[in-house]
Design a protein around this nucleic acid. Structure first.
Lengths: 306, 306
DNA sequence: GTTCCGCATGAATCGATAG
DNA sequence: ACTATCGATTCATGCGGAA
């Protein structure tokens, strides 16, 4: 009998993270608030202060990440005054000085980017997925994200989408949609470092910053079941919910009480819907990791039959 | 009666460029030699020295570019010792200090990237196309690169490319986009900052660093006919040949004699094939710009009926 | 139940206006 | 001069209602 945990915390990540032990996280996947020119906005960080704001947090992340773990940072600089801001690339350099290895930069090619027309610029339709590691050797389960080969898959998938109305995400790019891999388990190849998927607009009454496919792909690639996935900027909790669905333990932190409450409610309704008939719920008991937790945090656990 | 020039130079760009006047170039499109870890390689620059090697050249480029002009730098850092090198992002910061505006970063998503498999990374299938400008206002002819609208493009453009795309390329003067917009002049939308082109590998017996579509797209976007396109790292001369086909004046510089000779021969055979029946050739006469040229350069001009 | 059309909605960006 | 706010522009997607 095993337990899966979703632990969410209300507070500043650089403070909350002190509660966690060294080398305890397998994957950090997060999309921090992007820099905002407006200084006094709720949650906005000015581009000029972004690096110094982020470094204390990444310092803690470096500490809690396992040596075999990976940190994926989803971010994109905005255009300010006709130029691209440089705070992201400055952050990369600063994090290297902090001790991180900058292993790779994935590209998220957004199919439906925000519209608009300007005399000097086209629509911004991609974001960075910066991969950082502590060591050169890290866990990577490449087979989990293999995709069907080009020609054969194209024709097959075309018929599929015409008949079954399967969404575009199955068709393109880098291995999203597990139904495909079930049918086409031959002629599979490894994906590339360009991911091609759409931004889900708003499925429910809350809008996620990124589609579920995005964290799902990296969770498959860098963790196995029972591993621990951390999102230090939880937001609407997409990373944590996806992790939980995929059988990973997960921790979310956010400084905004409304996000905290929203995810808390989301988890409850989510678990009720998913597991009503078969699984029994209970409040979490204390175990090794829970001893360190602060009062604010919420811990929801699910018993799994095994 | 107008002349179109292809001028190619043998020499170091930072020296050759001194011959050119300020504010005389409309577009710089180039793919410089990538950094190479091996110190003594022919043409290779060590990552640690890359920025200091490039800055004297970009200083000249900043001088010769028109205030309304654009500099597109095609580059991608390699993975060295398990990490992405940082010389490209350091170069961006250094060029900003030099006076350049970092306007945009396009992504070239290569459809067929270099094959390979590694335990800690996937195939690299994208490159950066860094856009720099002198002023916030610059020439941009966005209508020239419009593309068919979404759903439609997938089915129709595919047929197009299979049957008629090759014929379009071999045609002189008329741009690739012109034909499309004639046939599909409704439902056209502006593109994004992600380019999705295949890498042509087998055009001739020499392999170009990038497909012709890539410089063609930026030449259409940032220049009009009779404008001047410069490639300070000419290589096999793709940028210059495409520019010439599109009715732009073009200048190429390369430090390697074999590249210089190859492009020289290429230009001659290219022009013979293209214009044999109708156009007469002659050695270039001196005009205003030619006065400044050194002995090494080669100037080929074509008389156009008007 | 399908299919199709209309409409709201985004991690956007610029230029103008107002303080 | 410098900064905050607002309107205009634009398009892929998902959803709801209608045929």
């Amino acid at each position: 009998m095993k337990e899966l945990n979703i632990d969410i915390y209300l507070g500043d990540s650089k403070e909350v993270l002190r509660q966690f032990g060294d080398n305890s996280i397998d994957l950090i996947f997060t999309s921090p608030p992007y820099a905002d020119q407006r200084k006094q906005t709720y949650g906005g960080i000015h581009p000029n202060n972004y690096v110094e704001w982020f470094l204390p947090i990444s310092e803690q992340l470096l500490r809690v990440l396992k040596p075999t773990g990976t940190f994926i940072l989803n971010i994109k600089e905005k255009a300010v005054n006709g130029e691209r801001s440089t705070y992201v690339i400055e952050l990369v350099l600063a994090m290297k000085k902090q001790g991180w290895l900058w292993t790779e930069e994935f590209i998220w090619h957004k199919k439906n980017s925000y519209p608009g027309k300007w005399p000097n610029r086209f629509r911004d339709s991609w974001e960075r997925l910066l991969q950082f590691n502590k060591e050169k050797k890290f866990n990577m389960y490449q087979e989990e994200v293999m995709v069907p080969t080009g020609d054969w898959a194209k024709s097959r998938l075309k018929n599929l989408s015409e008949t079954d109305k399967i969404r575009d995400k199955s068709k393109v790019g880098s291995g999203f949609g597990k139904n495909i891999s079930n049918w086409l388990n031959r002629d599979m190849v490894y994906p590339t470092n360009v991911l091609h998927l759409a931004t889900e607009c708003n499925n429910k009454n809350h809008s996620a910053a990124f589609p579920e496919d995005l964290p799902e792909w990296f969770i498959k690639l860098f963790t196995k079941e029972k591993d621990v996935v951390l999102d230090p900027f939880m937001g609407s909790g997409t990373t944590n919910l996806v992790s939980y669905k995929m059988g990973r333990n997960t921790i979310g932190i956010d400084i905004h009480p409304d996000y905290y409450e929203m995810v808390k409610n989301e988890i409850e309704s989510f678990q009720l819907i998913l597991n009503e008939p078969k699984v029994k719920y209970e409040k979490a008991k204390n175990n090794g990791r829970t001893e360190l937790r602060g009062k604010q945090h919420r811990n929801i656990s699910r018993k799994k039959d095994s």
